[in-house]
Structure formats: structure tokens, C-alpha cells
Design a protein around this nucleic acid. Structure first.
Lengths: 214, 214
DNA sequence: CCTATATTGTTAAAAAAATAACAACAGAGG
DNA sequence: CCTCTGTTGTTATTTTTTTAACAATATAGG
């Protein structure tokens, strides 16, 4: 539960969805050496109206200053804290197919404090390999590993058919969140959060925008 | 522009976002041999209230029958048509890194009528290779290829720094849509649609749900 | 030190989306 | 043929989200 000035407040999901984008652009501004920015300018960059931006940010605190704007670095750090990036996340990947290997090689996550500890697969030809410094283990050891290594996020990159099985195992072992790339709507106990990356859905939406009609 | 009974109607974006999920689950039901389904049952499956489901579908036509429900196959085909899947899409991929190779190997898209014709990269070691039946060409030939082969979708899987450049080239060559995996908000002329897959944003949202607080 | 300018935080209004309610109708059973 | 049940399409209501408005206040300049 989120608290602000002692009171519990519910953050609208629409706001939550925009936070990562804000954070990403603030990082770029910081890199460029921009010190301060107004809600009008920043809104233009992220594609959001200035009042909406201010309202969004004020769910979490008063980061701006009248007549001045927002200090980029301060806001960047504040949002990082809001999203919980400060507290490091330990992750495991399940499924070392093409997509899994792409995820292993992705540098973006590490940069933001997400630590991929190891990977699991059922294929004996993959088990034992080390890819980009990440060891591939037998999926039979999943539960023990998670318990022993303070893992809180599991990444699912297995085929559709086995995704729910893997999810069950992850939940049982005690992960707090699942990042799911299988085209399935996982059923998990409600203490566990799931974030889906249903890539094909994005492609279908694109198709609709290009060609859809009645 | 979408038309219904002669009148032009604007489909709410919230509805559009849900269509691919409906289509996916209808496909599964069809495979299972389910013939008919009520909005209540189907809503439960896709995680949407029954009235919302009916309202969503009725933006595009009256597919149901009172006292009976919806014919699964009919609805499946209707939604496919709504989303423009019937008309085949020809796609090119730009960027044959880890993610690009994963996309080449993905079977999901082909199954739904999306045809990946070829891939492009700037790296001479990749150019000329054939991966999973997809030939990798020099990016210098991008524009000509797109014009010659009736390509309407470009997939961007290049690093952040070159993504906008690639997008410009794709637009110039005449694609109608861009499926973007680079963590950048592309600027394109408004006749071209962009669908972003900003994977890291999903991970950050997950982090927020797990650990976020103030 | 005072005034003008810029820009916030917050409250109010408008728009969009989700939920609820219900009349209309098809099909089953008697 | 009539009644009852189930389920839709559609309209009304509520909730959520976005946009607009503005008083409050920090900074800069004289």
C-alpha cells in the first residue's frame, strides 16, 4: 500500500503506466546535462499534457518548485524510489530459447538495477552452458535456487503449453513478481504480480491501426 | 476510418487494446471445439465484465444472438476481419541482434498471417546469412526492397541510437506501420502508425507493483 | 525591498470508460 | 401455441481519467 502524508492513497493504474516513460526521459535529460525542466517542456517530450504531468507526479510528492520547475536529477531519483528501483531485484529466467537468449543479452535491465542471477531450461543440451555470463541450470532445481538466493522476480520465456506450470513453480518457490512473455494469461495467487509482454498483441493492434475496418 | 451502418465511428482506444486478447482466446476455444459462448462465460475467460464485452463487440457489429450467445467461429472470423488480419501483411525486420534473431524465429506471427519477408543489418558479418529461412541483407538496400516487395510493416530491433534513423528510412520507403522494440519514442509522419514494445517499461511496472512505495 | 514573471499544486469541469439496468427477443418445454 | 429461461443490444449511471483554471509562491530584476 502506498502512503502519502500518512494517508493511504491508491495510485490510478493510468498513472503507473506512465511512470516508466517519465523515468526513461529523465535519464536522457540527465545525461544531456539538463538541470531543470518545466512541466510544459517535459510534458511535450513525453507526450503528455502539462497539467496531467503535474497531477501524476503529485500523487507521490511535491517535487517541483513554483516559478522554477522540476530539478531533473531530484525528480529522476524520486521516481526511481517510487518505482522501487533502489531496492535491487534478483531475477531468474526460465526458458532459454531464442527469446530467452535475447533477454539474457539485454543490457537495459541491469543498468536499472535488475540483476539476472541465472537461467533454467528443461533441455539437457542447454543445461550447463553459460551464456553471456549467465549459467543455465536444470529446471528441476528451480525451487531450491529461488529459496536460496533471495529471488523475487521470475521471467517466463517458455512455450505457451508449459507457461502455467512454470508460473506455479515460481509462485510456490516464493517469487513476488512474474514477467511473462508467453501468450497466456497466467493464474496466480493474488499476492504475486504479473506483468505480461504479449508481443503478438502489439502486432495485432498495429495491424488494426493500419488496415482495420468493418 | 471505421464505418458502421454507414456512419463513421471512432473506436475507443481502450477497446482496441482488448481486441487482440479476445481474438487469442477465441482461437483457443475454437481449437477446443467450443461452438458457442455467452458474454458472461467469455468475459470470465478474458477477464472483462460481460456488459463491457458486449459493448466492445457492438462497436463493430451485432455478432451475438439473444438467448444463445456468440458463435465462436463466427466471432473469431469477425474479429480477424476487424483487425485486418485477413489482408496479409508483408514485413521486414531491421536489426539482427539477439532480439532480432528471436523475432525471426518466432512462429506466432506467421500463424496469424504476418509474413516476415527479409531482414536487414549493417553488420557485414551478418549480411548474406540466412537465419531460419530469412535472408539478411545490407541495410543500404532497405528502401529499394520495401518499394519492390509491397512491404507495409517495418520491425525495428536496432539499438536506441540508430532507431530514429531506421524509422526515417522506413517511412520514406513507404511502410504503413512500425513495430518498434527500441527504447525510444519515434517521431514519424502521422500517416504512419507506431506500436511500441518498450520491454523495460513492463519490468519497471512490475517492480513498482512489487516494491513501490513512498 | 518591491514588483513582475514563471510555474507549481490543487481544485473544478469535462471527457472517456466501465458498470449496471433492462427491454427485446430467440429457443426450449410443455 | 404459449410461457419461461437465457442472453443479447442498448441506454442510463457511475467511476475513472483527462483537461482546464487559478490561487499561491519562488525567483529575477530593478
Amino acid at each position: 500500500m502506498i502512503h502519502k502524508e500518512g494517508k493511504a492513497v491508491v495510485i490510478p493504474t493510468a498513472v503507473i503506466k506512465r511512470l516508466p516513460k517519465y523515468h526513461r526521459h529523465l535519464g536522457k535529460l540527465l545525461k544531456k546535462g539538463v538541470e531543470k525542466i518545466s512541466s510544459r517542456e517535459f510534458g511535450e517530450i513525453v507526450g503528455v499534457s502539462a497539467p496531467q504531468l503535474r497531477q501524476d507526479l503529485n500523487h507521490f510528492g511535491n517535487f517541483g518548485q513554483q516559478g522554477y520547475g522540476y530539478n531533473v536529477e531530484k525528480l529522476y531519483n524520486a521516481l526511481a524510489k517510487v518505482m522501487g528501483i533502489e531496492k535491487k531485484s534478483n531475477m531468474v529466467l526460465v526458458g532459454v530459447g531464442n527469446l530467452g537468449q535475447a533477454l539474457i543479452s539485454a543490457t537495459d535491465f541491469k543498468r536499472r538495477g535488475f540483476n539476472l542471477c541465472t537461467a533454467f531450461d528443461i533441455n539437457p543440451r542447454l543445461v550447463g552452458m553459460t551464456i553471456n555470463g549467465i549459467k543455465v541450470r536444470d529446471i528441476a532445481n528451480l525451487e531450491q535456487y529461488i529459496k536460496d538466493n533471495d529471488i523475487n522476480i521470475g521471467i517466463i520465456a517458455v512455450p505457451e503449453e508449459t507457461a502455467q506450470d512454470v508460473a506455479d513453480k515460481l509462485v510456490l518457490a516464493g517469487v513476488k513478481g512474474i514477467w511473462n512473455f508467453a501468450p497466456v494469461d497466467l493464474k496466480v495467487s493474488k499476492e504475486v504480480s504479473v506483468e505480461n509482454e504479449h508481443l503478438t498483441e502489439g502486432l495485432l493492434r498495429l495491424s488494426f491501426k493500419i488496415k482495420g475496418e468493418i
